[in-house]
Write a protein that binds this DNA or RNA. Structure first.
Lengths: 152, 152
DNA sequence: CTAAATGCCTACTTATTGAATAGGATAAAG
DNA sequence: CTTTATCCTATTCAATAAGTAGGCATTTAG
């Protein structure tokens, strides 16, 4: 299970990414819409800004906008911000490799081999699918897309 | 990251499964071999026995043996014993489904859809690969297999 | 210029979980 | 009847999850 924090982050990101270009979305609006504790969400949005994914505007008519295009932000990248390494074993993480204390021979470790497969399979999804992908073909989509669909 | 507990469980299971048929392996032996806290490992082996995966013999010349054949025990099954549901979201778990508090429409939730893909990919490995599979082609293998290889 | 609305930042709390540690009870073999 | 194992329960300690709280800083509408 991923943490609530991470889930809220995705909820917020998808909302900001789906908003019309250049239009800022406030933390209060997101919190209200998805029933997320407001102050908690603020911390999360702050993390996303520090990670260089969101940009923010303060004061009246402030809020959050995408800093990078939504289709350059993968689910894996976001997840790592809030959950740390996604690898199921320390010895499988490239970013923060650590030997397992109970490991005799890493090269011949069956646990490592099998979880390596699982990790690869999972990464093939998480590191390729982006926030943008998720919104394309979404029932929500961006507002203008929704109207497009109704019109067509 | 999976817990130490789960990793120790795999270590123990692979060891017992690799032992010659009918030969019991003691918790002390496993603990020594892999540098696992003995008393902690005892609890883990107990869980595996209660789950119907291992059988145990008490007293002198006691220890643990497989209750079910190693190739009927999947990595996913073992993992679930120690980690609970593997689903990344409560709404994706069949065993213990729970709605996300911040969900507006489950059927149209992009987060659910994308993590569903990741979960499927991961399960395709974890729920098909077994302890037996992992030992086949293993550099360790079972003792008699190792000798076979050296001989051939 | 001022007030209101918004984001920014830090500290604190509370409950749960992970990772053991501890101490003995029970059973089987020799 | 002693040794060697498993079996069972309780306790500890640290880290993490999931918020709560309170105020500072900035922008803009009036």
């Amino acid at each position: 299970m991923i943490s609530n924090k991470a889930r809220y982050a995705f909820r917020a990101l998808l909302t900001v990414a789906a908003a019309p270009e250049g239009e800022a979305v406030t933390s209060a609006e997101i919190a209200r819409r998805y029933n997320i504790p407001h102050k908690f969400l603020e911390q999360i949005l702050l993390d996303l800004r520090k990670a260089g994914i969101l940009d923010s505007r303060r004061g009246k008519s402030g809020g959050y906008v995408m800093l990078r295009p939504a289709d350059t932000v993968s689910f894996g990248e976001v997840l790592r911000i809030f959950e740390g390494p996604l690898a199921p074993l320390p010895c499988l993480s490239r970013q923060s490799y650590r030997r397992c204390e109970d490991c005799v021979s890493e090269a011949q470790c069956e646990i490592r081999r099998e979880f390596g497969r699982a990790y690869d399979a999972s990464r093939a999804v998480l590191d390729t699918r982006t926030i943008g992908d998720a919104l394309t073909n979404s029932a929500y989509g961006t507002p203008w897309r929704r109207e497009e669909r109704q019109a067509g």
